[in-house]
Amino acid sequence: MWEKKPILLLLLATAAILVGTIITVVLPFAWVNTEADRIETVTPYTALQQEGRDIYIREGCNNCHTQTVRPLVAEVLRYGDYSKSGEFVYDRPFLWGSKRTGPDLARLGGKYPDAWHYKHMASPRAMVPKTNMPDYGWLSANQLDPTMIKRKMDVLGFPYTSDELYSLADKNEMDALVAYMQKLGSDIPWRNAAATTIVGNLKNPYADSDHSTLEEWEPLYEENCEACHGEHFEGDIGPELDGASMEDTELFEIIYNGVPDNGMPPFAGLGADKVWQVVTFVKYYNQGEDH
């Protein structure tokens, strides 16, 4: 019968479409973003961070970077604590993405110092030689527009002060983007919870390696350390490395756990074995052939 009545067919089709829609799309509004999944420490974006977020959207960063860590072992190890619904209540739009051409950024905030981001954005390949990320140094040339940002904050209903807006006039788009990067995923104190505790006595299994063995570990240094500490340990974003002045175990703890307050990320993800290799390389490489 419906095959002869177009209006009936249209109504039936609409009904068929609406059943699944109401149950899986309309109904969830009763649970999601309510008090039930609110997290006390999650705050709205500041004017600078929100502008950074809009630049992230404008440049289509979400085409290559996701922003949600799944509760899977390898993923939590690689990126950090898994994402919670309450962390996204101020995100309009959501930026979870669908493809990781580059790494996930949900827990990027606080991982690196600001200086790392400025250098990396200006020339990603200077830091990570084989990356395919385009350069974004040109963002530094664009000043922010406080009037427009005020309108945005008003629409979003986020709190701001006039001093805060006033200070934006001296900032550029790169400042905003970096401020946003540092906010990502850092509203909950997951880093403390995720910090590893080293148990037992530490002993460098490679302490007696000869110089040629050390050279085999150079790529590890190049990939993980060189961008901040320089090609010859001379330092750049991070301090100059004078390995000889520290105990092996001290170096191990710094590299393994990082020094978050000083911008040194933890490298526990490399595994203890590789961290010992880096320790040995940093400490003994410059001490010459005798070791």
């Binding site: 999601v32 973003n33 619904s85 996204f88 995100d91 309009r92 739009p93 959501f94 945005k152």
Partner: peptide, 9 residues
Amino acid sequence: YSAFAGTND
């Protein structure tokens, strides 16, 4: 800005 936020969006 999207009418929906975060997980809803």
